[in-house]
């Protein structure tokens, strides 16, 4: 009898996992943004133009996971020379560390909505835990493409010095505001 229960459980596990909907990040609608103090004069905004990743969500069980890989070489502040500087070893060091990663460890639901995502952020191969606050989220059929799409906006704040990005501290701010706008298409 025990063996029967065990076998049933083993069979049920992948079926249960399969119930979670799998989505692939839509790079055309997924942009990580950042904002940082520029010498105290103003707040400079920038974004990464290329990212990829996966989103798994099971609305019935209220479980989810997300993994986003950001191409550090795609940093874009609408200024070519500044972008080159940001890609250089002074900041993102993109030639040595071309990827920035976020991988969730815990997704918190409030009702039917995701309200926060705990995860590990890796910049220059240094990994630190961060918590994203999800400010909006929608999973629905896209009105134009008729595909199932899940999207969310999230934000957090990090200290770049925690990741070894120390150049020009404290003149250029240590605190960096991160905002993620993410859309993913159901597989």
């Amino acid at each position: 009898m025990r063996k029967l229960i065990l076998a049933a459980a083993v069979i049920a596990l992948p079926v249960s996992a399969a119930l979670a909907d799998s989505y692939t990040i839509d790079p055309e609608h997924t942009f990580p943004h950042f904002a940082i103090s520029h010498l105290g004069f103003s707040t400079m905004h920038g974004r990464f133009d290329k990212s990829s990743g996966k989103l798994n969500i099971d609305m019935a069980k209220k479980t989810a996971s997300v993994e986003i890989v950001i191409d550090a070489t795609s940093v874009d502040t609408a200024h070519v020379k500044r972008d080159q500087h940001l890609k250089s070893p002074d900041f993102f060091n993109a030639a040595e560390f071309p990827e920035i990663k976020f991988k969730s460890t815990k997704v918190t639901f409030t009702g039917d909505k995701v309200t926060s995502v705990d995860g590990d952020l890796t910049i220059m191969k240094t990994t630190k835990p961060v918590t994203l606050t999800v400010t909006s989220m929608l999973c629905a059929v896209h009105a134009m493409s008729k595909k199932n799409v899940c999207g969310f906006d999230a934000n957090t704040k990090i200290k770049r010095s925690d990741f070894g990005v120390n150049y020009a501290l404290p003149a250029i701010g240590d605190e960096v505001a991160l905002t993620l706008e993410v859309e993913a298409i159901k597989d």
């Binding site: 070893p89 040595e96 560390f97 220059m124 240094t126 120390n166």
Partner: peptide, 13 residues
């Protein structure tokens, strides 16, 4: 001044 005493992560610099 430009790096501090930190050696992690061990970048080229």
């Amino acid at each position: 001044f430009v790096n501090g005493i930190s050696l992690q992560p061990l970048t080229a610099a």
